[in-house]
């Protein structure tokens, strides 16, 4: 069986303690949350941190709550926590859609929302979902907290704006009155990473789209979003033609690469197809909310 290389281990007991440990051990320390991305990479020896700082004891970071209409998710919330939250299902359905197809139920028990975002895998579902929702991420460091839009969080594959010594602590999703959201994904099998996936958030007023958010993953979209397609929808009539055109635009602007899962042409097609499917479903949900 594959086994990690030697590593030191520290267990943080509070956010403050975690920051102290991060400062003490410097850039060759890694934050260990659920570990479902980090530990496999350590087993393959693609990741060889000197020290692991285990934050699983930070129960203060494990919550899913709605305050003032805003969704607040602690970075240590497990995927299962998000899926089990009834209020998330009602008001941010995209997150339930996505969580139902992220990895598998046992992995979702332990993998964390913050860990998934910080891993910054180019195929991460939650990165697209939170991009669609125009979420804000809260990063805590030695000098206090700062917030970063989800769409500026990822700086490249496996890279984020979280600096050494900092910790992602919360994800905030703004309330979206009159909104509906949805997520659509194609993968090769249950539990697989997406071949492509699209998330959509639509706020409508009467027949008009007042706000649109589209997230894409696994197709090389910058910041996991499809801003050109969003622009096409913003302020426009919520018609099937409009949604279809948004799909075409989303497909046009993504930059998928071919691999053994499928050729770029297929993934580009999926970006469009799934964008439209997510938009349609989000619109239905928005309208259901109006009723």
């Amino acid at each position: 069986m594959q086994v990690p290389a030697q590593v030191e281990y520290e267990r943080a007991v509070s956010v403050g303690h975690a920051l102290t440990l991060l400062a003490r051990y410097g850039p060759r320390a890694a934050v260990l949350a659920g570990g479902h991305s980090l530990i496999p990479m350590m087993k393959l020896r693609l990741a060889q941190p000197e020290t692991l700082i285990d934050i699983n004891a930070l129960s203060e970071l494990r919550y899913v709550e709605v305050a003032d209409g805003e969704l607040r998710v602690g970075a240590l919330a497990r995927h299962a926590d998000l899926l089990e939250s009834a209020v998330v299902g009602e008001r941010f359905a995209i997150l339930h859609d996505a969580e139902q197809v992220i990895a598998d139920p046992v992995v979702r028990n332990w993998g964390t929302v913050g860990g998934s975002l910080c891993q910054s895998d180019p195929s991460e579902d939650l990165s697209a979902a939170f991009a669609a929702l125009k979420a804000t991420l809260v990063i805590t460091g030695p000098d206090g907290t700062r917030t970063v839009p989800a769409r500026r969080f990822h700086t490249g594959p496996y890279e984020t704006v979280v600096a050494p010594g900092e910790l992602l602590t919360e994800i905030r999703v703004p309330a979206s009155p009159g909104g509906g959201s949805a997520y659509a994904k194609v993968c090769r099998r249950a539990g697989d990473w997406p071949l492509a996936a699209a998330g959509a958030m639509l706020a409508v007023d009467g027949g008009t789209i007042v706000e649109a958010g589209i997230g894409l993953t696994a197709v090389g979209s910058r910041h996991f979003c499809a801003s050109e397609a969003e622009e096409h929808l913003s302020g426009a009539p919520a018609t099937p033609e409009r949604l279809a055109e948004a799909g075409r635009i989303a497909a046009q602007h993504c930059r998928p690469v071919s691999d053994q899962r499928g050729p770029a042409s297929y993934k580009r097609h999926l970006a469009g197809e799934l964008t439209v499917r997510a938009l349609r479903r989000a619109l239905l949900r928005a309208r259901a909310g109006e009723r």
Binding site: R188, L195, R261, G262, H269
Partner: peptide, 11 residues
Amino acid sequence: MTPANVWLAIE
């Protein structure tokens, strides 16, 4: 017959 292979054949 992965999704990609099926879609390519359809195309």
